[in-house]
Amino acid sequence: GHNSQKDWPDSFGYGKTASKADIIAKDIDVRPDGVGLPKGAGRIDTGALIFAEKCAMCHGVGGKLVKGQKLPAPALVSDTNFVKRKGNTVGNYWPYATTLFDYVRRSMPYNAPGSLTNQEVYDITAYLLYANGVIKKGATINAQTLPKVVMPARKYFVNDDRRGGNEVR
């Protein structure tokens, strides 16, 4: 019998080797070190236009909270003040700029996910970083620079230090 794990074969032989094409079709993630970023570069102005057209209806004009107005989606834009923030935004909370590219490309716009070109995602990313005061007008956003953008809230993030046992953390 092979009922003990020690007696298992090295391989059961189920499943198939994945081809390069299999992987490329799904490997859409972008890492903090930039692995996964496509070619291209973001343009703040174009990003602003796309945002107004495809995003503002849910995230508000300029991605900002308007007092008294209830939006169907979170505000995305603020200053970079983590300590005095009201609500988390890209500027005051997000620790990595690459997350913005990755998330927008995979999930947004909510009503048409997966519809944006890489160029559009670069443009929006540049615009949102700019609107949040993270980058300056004229900054270049591409596969080399995006990982290097230092997000203002980055320094606040620490790994979990809870450990169980009789200790409330």
Binding site: R31, W94, P95, T99
Partner: peptide, 30 residues
């Protein structure tokens, strides 16, 4: 996908992180 660092996806940065003292706790799985 297996790698040698976390991806810092939106669900583990913008969400599922929370302020503790003056810091933000991330990857609090348990």
């Amino acid at each position: 996908e297996f790698g040698d660092q976390p991806w810092m996806t939106r669900e583990e940065t913008s969400k599922y992180t929370y302020q503790v003292g003056e810091k933000v706790r991330q990857f609090s799985f348990e």
